[in-house]
């Protein structure tokens, strides 16, 4: 299966020795031109090619990783200002803030809305994820792809590395996906949730990253028009307001 190193080296126009040393991590800095040629030789998608360049960036040029930086109050207010489900995530995909509709949509029935959540850990290890997420495998791929990108951006972030190790230890499905090179669809896509009471929620997710920040991510789950998904949010909000009256 796959290509031999010699074939990759030939296709990319580099020597076998040089390619081998890159793969073994024995080359200090790989030029962007070589990375682009390798990506082409391996028929990398644009996202995969971008990931090659991200991984090769020298540590000094990588984003600094202040793990667990608290979210600024104004970022939390930003999440609250969206009418669609919105959350602020750390590089390890811990939810540090989420607006009310996000929490109503995601939280298992009967559990506290403020409970600590990690999107990838919960997806693989929480039984409720198999109830809520309509296409669990699609979500698993997207989660692993997103975590792979974050691990590359924050190679010294202990939370990211700990989470990867925990999931490698505890989930065979995670181990299988982590061994593959998938980075596609890590920042956007269309998914569905099956809320036990409110019904099917079809959404497009997008991620926004404030520039020059601690690596915090704002993620939005926008309902797809014509799918009845806005009504799901309306139902959950009405139910919540009845309960708090």
């Amino acid at each position: 299966p796959g290509l031999r190193r010699q074939e990759v080296a030939d296709l990319a126009g580099v020597s076998l020795d040089y390619y081998t040393r890159i793969e073994q991590g024995r080359v200090g800095e790989v030029s962007p031109a070589v990375l682009t040629a390798l990506g082409r030789a391996l028929r990398a998608t644009p996202e995969e090619s971008a990931h090659l360049h991200r991984l090769a960036a020298s540590p000094a040029r990588r984003r600094s990783s202040r793990a667990q930086a608290p979210a600024r109050p104004s970022l939390l207010a930003l999440a609250d200002s969206f009418a669609v489900p919105a959350a602020v995530l750390t590089p390890s995909l811990d939810v540090v803030a989420a607006n009310l509709v996000w929490r109503l949509l995601i939280t298992p029935p009967g559990q506290s809305l403020t409970r600590d959540k990690n999107l990838v850990r919960d997806h693989f290890l929480e039984p409720y994820a198999r109830v809520l997420v309509a296409d669990w495998s699609l979500g698993a791929r997207a989660g692993v792809a997103g975590l792979r990108v974050q691990a590359a951006l924050h190679p010294h972030d202990e939370r990211v590395q700990q989470l990867v190790q925990e999931l490698l230890d505890r989930s065979e499905e995670f181990r299988r996906l982590w061994s593959m090179p998938d980075v596609d669809g890590s920042t956007h896509g269309r998914h569905r949730l099956l809320h036990p009471r409110a019904g099917q929620y079809t959404y497009d997710y997008e991620t926004l990253q404030p520039p020059g920040d601690e690596g915090l991510i704002v993620t939005l789950f926008s309902p797809v028009p014509g799918t009845g998904s806005q009504e799901v949010l309306d139902t959950l909000l009405a139910e919540h307001h009845r309960g708090t009256e």
Binding site: L3, R5, I22, E23, Q24, A44, H51, P181
Partner: peptide, 21 residues
């Protein structure tokens, strides 16, 4: 193994048979 070498190896191992030739 989330580094460049591991990612290249995974891409190389993934390449589908119909691509080779």
């Amino acid at each position: 193994g989330a580094g460049l070498g591991a990612f290249l190896r995974a891409l190389r191992n993934r390449r589908r048979p119909e691509d080779v030739g």
